[in-house]
Amino acid sequence: MEALRTEKLSKSYGKVRGIIELDLRVEQGEFFGFIGPNGAGKSTTIRTLLGLLRPTSGKGTVLGLDITRKTEEILAHVGYLPSETVFYPGMKVRELIRFSAGLRRRDCGKEGDVLCERLRLDPNRRVEELSLGNRKKAGIVCALQHRPELLILDEPTSGLDPLIQREFFAILKEYHAAGTTVFLSSHVLSEIRRNCSEALVLREGRAVARLGRAELDKSEEEFEDFFLRYYMEGDEET
């Protein structure tokens, strides 16, 4: 079964373009990259898949479930890390993590503790006192603690220091090895190249290329040149 599938999925905000007739296929068990410059439509795609935004046209499924009708069932099997993590003020990290588990009607206390320890996140801190990186860590714990079938990560490493980034990807690889599908949206080419087996390039709301192992196995410099071609073509067109 496909973890993600869209057919001519479009989302516009009035006259402003979001995504245009996007066809996306991600098989279960993949570590899939979703690349594109800022404003390409990556977050819009994710938010539409998760039911936050209603598509303007087209269809989509997550784990075989329709994105407009089965949102609650989809979200029960998905862990999502947004690009900007905003939490309720006045809560401690531990309360936030417990609240997230409570909304899932799950007891994830043990896994939550392990993740906090591995990411060096103090669960007794208040969320409004957290730095950008620590807020991100809290978001990661909330997204991972229930061991989801599908992980959707939107710019997950922004704000994380290199050591924690390394630990984070080690955790992702463990989850992936245990069967979790990982959908990694990023504009950091190196993390896509290093971790993903396939990737889709998005530009100005449209899918412009699907990259396989051959492209992702190129050296960092070659990959960057290869990828930047899509950017340049976009600039020339505009």
């Binding site: 938010r47 998760l50 039911g51 936050l52 949102t71 609650e72 069932e73 979200l75 029960a76 998905v78 999502y80 947004p82 993590t85 905003v86 939490f87 997230s100 909304l103 899932r104 009607r105 909330c142």
Partner: peptide
């Protein structure tokens, strides 16, 4: 975004 990406209708 945090609340509505949890399985609550």
């Amino acid at each position: 975004e945090f609340l509505l990406t949890h399985p609550v209708s």
